[in-house]
């Protein structure tokens, strides 16, 4: 079960990040998780939102370069070693993590971590086999 992440190209220019999130706010779009990857000259803002299709349209209308990427949201036990336990599975199965970041909020007592894999389908299959919960679109919207 994959969910959609939005990636937005940000020129290294004053106020650009503000303009992006401001546009989303005005369109009543709620940001569920975010991270910024940066180089010396530009940044890429990655976000998970409640209404990704609308968000993409809003951003494009405002002149941003944005695209969508499939990611996997995984429930992780919120206790020491919880994340390590999940990563060990990927390690053992030779699944490569491109990047990851965490949700601000919890789902019940579990933390939510977002992964971008080079092979999402394989990762999802492995997670299912190990009885680790993967969250769907509806659950993400409900958080």
């Amino acid at each position: 079960m994959k969910i959609i992440q939005l990636s937005i190209f940000l020129e290294n220019k004053k106020g650009r990040l503000y303009e992006a999130v401001q546009a989303l706010g005005e369109a009543s779009i709620n940001i569920k998780a975010l991270t910024i990857a940066e180089s010396e000259e530009f940044g890429v803002l990655r976000i998970v939102v409640d209404k990704p299709e609308t968000a993409l349209q809003v951003l494009k209308e405002k002149g941003f370069v944005a695209s969508i990427t499939d990611i996997v949201a995984v429930e992780v036990n919120d206790r020491p070693g919880g994340l390590a336990g999940v990563l060990k599975i990927f390690n053992d199965q030779d699944i490569n993590v491109e990047y990851m970041y965490a949700f601000d909020e919890k789902n019940a007592d579990n933390a939510i971590v977002v992964f971008r894999f080079d092979d999402s389908d394989k990762a999802i299959a492995v997670l299912a086999k190990n009885k680790i919960r993967v969250l769907g679109k509806k659950e993400i919207q409900g958080i």
Binding site: Q5, S7, F9, A37, E38, S39, E41, F42, V44, R46, V65, A66, S67, T69, E98, R116
Partner: peptide, 17 residues
């Protein structure tokens, strides 16, 4: 940058530069 060429990955964009 041409919109259709935007990638989510920093290293791709850096390689492009």
């Amino acid at each position: 940058l041409k919109e259709s060429f935007f990638s989510d990955e920093i290293k791709f964009l850096q390689n492009f530069e």
